[in-house]
Structure formats: C-alpha cells, structure tokens
Amino acid sequence: MSLQSQISLPAQIGILLGDLGEVNIVALKYLIIHLNTLQSDFEFEFFPITDRQDPVLRQMSKTSEIERSRVRAELPGFLERTRTSLSHLSQEYKLSQAIPPDKFILLTMARFNDNYYFVRVAGMSVLALGNWERHMAPPSLLEFFVTLVLRQAVSFVSPSLKGSVHLGTKGCLFDFTHKLEDVRLKTLQGFICSDCQASLATDGHAQLAEHLLSVLDTSRWLGKTEDPTTPAGIVSNLGYDLFKTKGVKPNLWEKTQAILREEGVKELIKLIGGITLAALLLWLGLKK
C-alpha cells in the first residue's frame, strides 16, 4: 500500500441512531462514547438526524424484513443528504467545526431479508440487529453493538479488511459469521487472528491490532455492576445491567434482581454503620 493511499489515524466516525425500538439508547451512547477514552485510533461522535422521514430511515424502521440490496443502492444518497444537513446545522449554530466527518455508521434494529446484519458502501455502514434474540446473551445486545461498531470502524481504514475475511469461525473480530448469534464469539473472545493482524500491517496499521485487543477484552474495562464508578456500574444506573439483562430491555425478573442487589447493598451499608456506631458508643462508655 502506498503512503498516499494509507488512511491516517485517528479516524473521525459519526454515529447515527436509526429506529432502535426499545433499546436503552442512553446506555448505548455512553458505551460507544466511552470507547474514545480506551483508544486513540478512532473518535466516535453522535450526530442528530434532522429528517426522520428520510426514505432510507423509513425503510429501516419497518418491522418486516427489508431488501439489503435496495438499502445499499440508496445509501450514497442518504450519506450525501446527511452530510449536507449537518453542515447546514453547524452553520446555523455558527460552530467552528462546520464540516461533518466523511465516515458514518447507522445503528438500527432492522432485519435484512438475507440474514446479514450489516451493509456498507464508501463512507457509510449500517448495522441491522433486528434478528438479535435473548438466547444470544451473554454478551448483551449493547455489547454486540459496541463490538460491531469497532469492526465497521476498521473497515473504513483498512482496505484488506473491508469485507468479511475467513469462513471459519475463530472468534476473530473479522470472522464471517453465518448466524448473528455467532457474533457473540467476537465479543466474548476479544481476538484478532494472525492473518488479520498481518493484513492490518500491510495496510500500514500494524499497531491497530494491539490497540483493538485491549478494547475488545472487556474484562479490562467494564468493571463490576456493583461499583458505580465503573462503566458496568454506570450503565446499570442508566437502567441496563450488562451481566443480567438478556433482552433488549430488562424483564420483570431482571428488574427484581437489580432491586434486590441494590437493596442488599443498602442493607449492608446500614449494617456496617450500625456496627460502627455501636462500637463507638461502647468505646465512649468504656472511657467513662
């Protein structure tokens, strides 16, 4: 790959939210934005959609299966309309950064008729996770989105990994997976195979694999739900327990578990406080 054709990093990538149904959007936004603090190769930023009646968005909001080939044909026009409207919006607010990025990922819960879960054209990728089901957790639906956002981000900067790579499922970020449920292995493994690492090196991004591995290994940064200072704890306070919620949103039992855990922590704090107070009173009594 020539130096002229090598895409420099960090790459700025705009995130657009299509029809996500009952997905916890605030929690999803937080997790994706948090990726900016874990690596410096990609800068993810959310942009508003100014026209919800755009033909592509209306099509992606259907509950029935939609034709992926039709969506692909209409994406270049959607990308142009999106960038134009965002430029006008920046000018309206007199922002110094008036030009939006040239790379976007649209997140949806649509379903394609060929069981694929993404479609891509130059400058635009669409994730369609409408075929996701409860039995595919763990990991959670939100973690599916985070992993696939990273995968699409790489496709923008690495021509060798633009499309699906190997037929065999390795748990590699760049696996071709026949079934959406097999995407869980990409998230649970946090792995990039030797062939794909070599492809990144060929494209001039040898260090990117190492950086991605540290992010894909969520055990390094998600933390525990019980700790409100960790990403997992913050997401739990936003209404989505990454380790308990198996559906698009928590069901009654999962909500009950969260309440019991929260109340259990409160009761423990009360118990510790009571013991501390009793010990203090006893100590003051003995001093007298």
Score class of each variant (00 low, 15 high):
Leu277Ala: 15
Asp114Ser: 11
Leu141Asn: 05
Gly130Glu: 02
Pro76Glu: 12
Leu213His: 00
Arg52Cys: 07
Gly204His: 03
Gln97Asn: 15
Glu74Met: 13
Leu17Thr: 05
Pro159Gly: 04
Leu242Asp: 03
Leu79Pro: 06
Glu210Ile: 06
Val56Gly: 13
Leu16Gly: 01
Gly21Phe: 02
Cys196Asp: 11
Met60Ala: 10
Gly130Thr: 01
Ser61Val: 06
Pro48Glu: 12
Ala232Pro: 04
Arg184Ala: 15
Arg220Cys: 03
Val121Trp: 04
Gly21Ile: 07
Glu254Arg: 00
Asp227Gln: 00
Ile99Cys: 09
Gln53Phe: 03
Lys186Trp: 06
Ser155Trp: 08
Val165Leu: 09
Val157Lys: 08
Ala128Pro: 12
Val183Gln: 05
Met60Lys: 07
Leu161Asp: 10
Ala153His: 03
Leu3Pro: 02
Arg120Glu: 14
Ser96Glu: 12
Leu16Tyr: 03
Phe176Pro: 05
Ile33Trp: 07
Ile13Phe: 03
Ser194Ala: 14
Leu284Trp: 05
Leu286Lys: 13
Ser87Asp: 08
Val23Trp: 04
Glu263Tyr: 12
Thr37Ile: 09
Thr245Trp: 01
Ser199Ala: 15
Leu213Phe: 02
Ile32Leu: 02
Met124Gln: 11
Gly223His: 01
Trp132Asp: 07
Ser160Pro: 08
Trp221Cys: 02
Phe42Pro: 10
Val56Pro: 12
Val265Phe: 11
Gln6Phe: 06
Lys103Pro: 09
Lys94Ser: 15
Ser158Gln: 09
Ala206Arg: 03
Leu188Ile: 04
Ser40Ile: 01
Ala153Ile: 02
Arg151Lys: 15
Gly130Ser: 05
Leu17Gly: 07
Ile13Val: 15
Ala11Trp: 05
Thr169Gly: 02
Glu262Trp: 12
Leu271Asp: 11
Ser194Tyr: 11
Ala153Phe: 00
Phe176Lys: 13
Asn113Thr: 10
Gly247Arg: 01
Asp203Ile: 01
Lys287Thr: 12
Ile269His: 13
Phe144His: 12
Leu129Ala: 00
Pro48Ile: 10
Glu80Ser: 11
Tyr117Phe: 15
Gln97Cys: 04
Asp182Asn: 12
Pro138Gln: 08
Leu142Tyr: 08
Gly163Val: 04
His211Gln: 15
Leu106Tyr: 07
Val157Glu: 02
Ala201Val: 01
Ile32Lys: 04
Leu242Gln: 03
Leu260Asn: 08
Tyr116Val: 05
